[in-house]
Design a protein around this nucleic acid. Structure first.
Lengths: 132, 132
DNA sequence: ATTAACGCAACAGCAAAAGTTACATTAGCC
DNA sequence: GGCTAATGTAACTTTTGCTGTTGCGTTAAT
């Protein structure tokens, strides 16, 4: 895998699940297809389960499945579930004694927040049913 | 210093320079004010010099100064000069055999490119003369 | 009871960034 | 001319976050 791979892994997996929603997949299957490790898969998909996008079942015939219809899951849902950001977060620091620093922080933070919002909007326009 | 500190360091320094453009500053002065190391300062400011935003002079009375008027340097100029990105760059990979992956990559890359463009636009709206 | 799955914690390995040291070069100043 | 104070740069160390890995407990189907 590569940098910022959690989102890639998540989207990739959900994309495939969208194409055959009833099939149960094990983390080992998924890992093999994605070229990574089952534990990593469980780590990432676990977050999606917390967010209500996936369900997992333990035991012999266990594995992972979508928790709702593929066209009811957007790329933004996945992105937000992982709470990792594709936009650098402004450094939240105690207000410094230096006014230049304070003004800059406010400016940059406000720009980044807007950008992040608009990123999420854009991602919300596509569902995982549309990526196969 | 903290994560993504090159841009912070650069903006912070240029902000101060904008307030007193004729004063020559040594990397040691700047490092002290920014709580970092002169070599790090030279590394970062060196990129700004390459981009034509700063000039440096060697030798006894050497140091750093703005290369143009403070109101002719935008935050975008600084951001672009450092060619580090606040928006994660889409992974440029050889087209995979997996169509889901290919479609996703295209979608995500296109969103990220738009977002990056709009970030630069937003940063271009503020000059370093406005942050003090 | 066995087997095959997830859940989780702990640790190892790696890569990028920052920090540091060291030294060459340059330019002002006596 | 020699001294001093600055940049330029390379090499190394340290730190940090992420991925990968191992190990083991728990759960459920057969």
């Amino acid at each position: 895998m590569k940098r910022n791979s959690r989102l890639s892994l998540a989207l990739h997996t959900l994309g495939h699940m969208a194409g055959d929603p009833d099939r149960m997949r094990t983390s080992a299957d998924i890992a093999k297809h994605a070229g990574t490790n089952p534990v990593v898969v469980r780590r990432v998909l676990g977050k999606l389960r917390e967010a209500g996008l996936l369900t997992s079942e333990k035991g012999h015939a266990g594995g992972w499945r979508l928790a709702r219809a593929p066209d009811a899951i957007t790329l933004a849902d996945v992105y937000l579930a992982l709470d990792e950001s594709l936009v650098a977060t402004a450094e939240q620091e105690a207000a410094s004694a230096c006014s230049v620093e304070n003004i800059l922080q406010k400016k940059v933070a406000s720009v980044l927040e807007d950008i992040e919002r608009s990123l999420v909007e854009r991602l919300a326009a596509t569902t995982i049913a549309e990526v196969r």
